[in-house]
Nucleic acid binder design. Structure first.
Lengths: 412, 412
DNA sequence: CGTCAGCTAAATCCATTTGATGGATGAAGT
DNA sequence: ACTTCATCCATCAAATGGATTTAGCTGACG
């Protein structure tokens, strides 16, 4: 059931709206804010005063006069708040500390040789986080919490990860609670693609305002959906599941039993396999693939490098995968009616141009795209660390965006 | 840019929330409303008074006491408001008058032999609407407006239909303005699938609360998306485009050039064609198909009847189409993370069970569906007239649902 | 060439309005 | 006597419109 509002919430909402407007524009005056948000000058004035008092924004100079008193410009105070972001991946845990402006003020990478015991990983991440915070001289009173980006389906009600692919032993683990206990911080949890989308929304300014579909390529493929500046979470907190979008069937079986799911065709392991099967040992040797199951990380790096160097075999298999991503993206973009698709994720490094090209061609084929609005396809503005930065953004977003809340409150 | 709120809007919003709660529950007391909406007893009391004064709800008896004073129950007043809905289709225009409870209090069907001139159609529909309103003795002061459900992409900014498939001569026609001029009523315009979804949301009560994906089969295939009781319109007002979802490619070319778009495989004409190609003249004769291009309506009726009577050939081709709808629905449901899919549209009559079966199997295959929440697949609660009733609901929705507004205001 | 009145735009002050809230009170039952 | 529902009343929070202050621009006049 839809729930009602009250006055305090209106206040909070308007504050969030104004903060959002300052963030996405970079630098604005109060009058401009009033025009942008539809609020009165007076209201903007009041809201801005509160934000100034809270240390979240600062006055940053004057605009040239347009005949009368000059406008005083407002900007976000980067040191107004900060958050920790943790991107969990079978391969490694990336930890970042991000300030209110989205700047990374410290980062660490923990190799996770063999996923291992969740409790152990949580412990190591928590200790590393503590050291990182000390070294970065973060004002603890301005530290809002810790965000986690994890692969695979989540159970929002328990703050647990459910059966993440390639993450044996991590099923039904109450990650949010464990991190809250280990760090004493409020914790937010979301899947990696959604976290990445929130990161883009938070950091990308005007280029990521409105609506977009974020396609994330990591160990698997996922999507994060932002509609009207609002993040879509879905009934169970798993919106953006992209791996089960239908594509041209081949001979790869999804764990759901279908032969036409996108997921199994576009993982790094699958593309490496494609290269071996379609182009043989010669091509593999030329590129430098070992071809053993536990060298996927290395092989994938080599394959991407080869594709970037225009190796025909590498380009071919990447393009095949890109084509399937394009098919799925076409359906998603037309279903959601978004006019922007953003590509990101660590598995994409170097091969963005190929993927971009195919996706762009696919999403712009539909009649709506051609007659009413074209769809822009762009790379992540954050880059390699979208996962971790996105995780941190979960916290910033939870605190300063209208209508979302943290999973766990401050424990104790 | 996200816009701010103010006090009046809060009031309006809370009124809409309470009205919505009364509508979806059917009959509730004030205290229950307070619990459902999170508002105070006092606030509910105030809001309800306003709704009573406005003639939108009525007190309808007392609940049995639970130890103290009995609760007075509230229901929607069906005669509190009404709206006209027009479903435009190449085949016919269906006009209905719907009251606040969603009851159809009058309807007409205009055959459109050969789509013809838009201006002429608008004129005929307007005149028929006038007569229909007179006959149904509708209180004009309580008539909120006219809603139009049209196929094909729309241009929200101009209130025009853009290049609707099978609707030659209707491209870029400013339908909303034309109807507003012809009837003097405020007009709302949306595509047929979205209108149908809004209709379900408006009339379906508790069964259509929350989030769902509505798959509409008319001349083409489309979808309407309701997320958290809010209708998704999309950047250009064309959310729910379902015909370009990727499915297993065959030999049918979409007008966008792709071979793997859902649309061309599931239209009645395509399924009829399938029957002829896969099962030959014998089967076609047995079913009673003429097989000429302009007898699609008749043939489709015959084919559906045959499928309902378990004719193996008819069932086969329907099931093939259903399977592809299922593939697309699987992707959409997992992308949006909805736990309910609703099927409707006039082309579906009689063959719902087959479609339902295939769609249900497909959407419940994914890991999220199996481990976290199952997806229910259901028929429209409105039935055959979803299009027209949905069109009328556009108006009701625009007036009494939080956060949406009419395209054209009262002209003059 | 300076300067001061008149103008404009930005930001704020103040009184008012709207809407939700908590506590007390009345109403209708068991 | 006790419950539960519903409303009354005083209060509080937030936005609003209009007046006011602040700050800079412009141009005419000495």
């Amino acid at each position: 059931m839809l729930s009602g509002t009250n006055l305090p919430r209106v206040g909070g909402y308007n504050q969030a709206v104004v903060l959002d407007a300052i963030r996405t524009t970079g630098q604005v005056s109060r009058v401009e804010l009033a025009a942008l948000t539809g609020l009165t000058n007076q209201t903007v004035s009041n809201v801005v005063r509160k934000l100034l008092d809270a240390g979240l924004v600062a006055e940053s100079g004057q605009a040239p006069s347009s005949g009368g008193k000059r406008r005083t410009l407002l900007t976000l105070r980067a040191d107004g708040a900060c958050a920790v972001g943790v991107h969990l991946d079978p391969e490694a845990a990336v930890i970042v500390v991000v300030d209110l402006a989205g700047e990374v003020i410290g980062s660490r990478r923990l190799r996770l040789t063999d996923p291992g015991d969740p409790a152990d990983v949580v412990d190591r991440v928590a200790r590393t986080t503590g050291r990182l915070l000390d070294r970065s001289a973060v004002d603890r009173t301005r530290l809002l919490g810790l965000g986690i980006a994890a692969p695979g389906p989540l159970d929002g009600s328990t703050g647990a990860v459910v059966a993440p692919p390639n993450f044996p032993g991590w099923g039904r683990v109450p990650l949010a609670d464990m991190f809250a206990d280990a760090t004493g911080l409020p914790v937010a949890l979301d899947n990696d693609a959604t976290a990445a989308a929130i990161g883009e929304r938070w950091i990308g300014g005007a280029d990521r305002a409105g609506s977009f579909l974020f396609i994330y390529l990591g160990t698997g493929v996922g999507a994060g959906i932002v509609l009207n500046n609002t993040v879509l979470h879905g009934d169970s907190g798993n919106a953006g599941e992209f791996g089960h979008m239908a594509v041209e069937p081949g001979d790869r079986v999804c764990h759901c039993g279908a032969m036409d799911c996108l997921g199994p065709y576009v993982s790094p392991a699958a593309i490496i396999d494609d290269l071996l099967r379609l182009h043989g040992r010669t091509a593999a040797d030329r590129i430098g693939l070992t071809g053993t199951p536990d060298s996927v990380h290395h092989d994938w790096k080599a394959l991407r490098r080869a594709a970037r160097a225009d190796d025909p075999a590498a380009c071919d298999v990447v393009r095949r995968a890109a084509r399937r991503i394009g098919e799925a993206a076409r359906g998603a973009a037309s279903l959601l009616d978004v006019s922007r698709v953003v590509l990101g994720g660590e598995a994409l490094r170097g091969i963005e141009p190929i993927i971009r090209e195919e996706v762009e061609a696919a999403v712009n084929r539909t009649s709506v795209a051609r007659t009413i609005r074209a769809v822009a396809v762009e790379q992540s503005v954050i880059g390699e660390t979208v996962g971790a930065v996105g995780a941190a953004s979960l916290v910033l977003h939870g605190n300063y965006a209208p209508g979302w809340r943290m999973l766990t409150d401050v424990p104790g």
